[in-house]
């Protein structure tokens, strides 16, 4: 099921947090040991997604990885692309 759960959780969470949900995009690519999700958000929403001291970003990564655990896809990287 190829990381669908992780990507879907990622997009869902980010869309809930930003001011402009329609500007959210999650692009998935393969890496050596797993997959990588590149998240882009609308102007001005990056701060929200990252949060103070990266707390929100950290929480998103934790939750997204948890969602992908069953997928046997190895590591899941979540990058927030500015």
């Amino acid at each position: 099921m190829s990381a669908a759960a992780a990507a879907s959780v990622c997009e869902y969470v980010v869309r809930q947090i930003v001011d402009d949900p329609d500007a959210v995009a999650v692009a998935q690519s393969d890496t050596d040991g797993g997959i990588r999700l590149d998240v882009t958000v609308g102007d001005g929403d990056m701060g929200r997604v990252i949060g103070k001291r990266g707390r929100v970003a950290g929480a998103i990564r934790t939750v997204v990885r948890a969602a992908g655990v069953d997928d046997e896809i190895g590591s899941i990287e979540v990058e927030f692309v500015d």
Partner: peptide, 14 residues
């Protein structure tokens, strides 16, 4: 804990 943190963030925005 991360989910609770996200809930807080969602509430902050909404």
């Amino acid at each position: 804990v991360a989910i609770d943190e996200l809930v807080r963030t969602v509430l902050q925005r909404q």
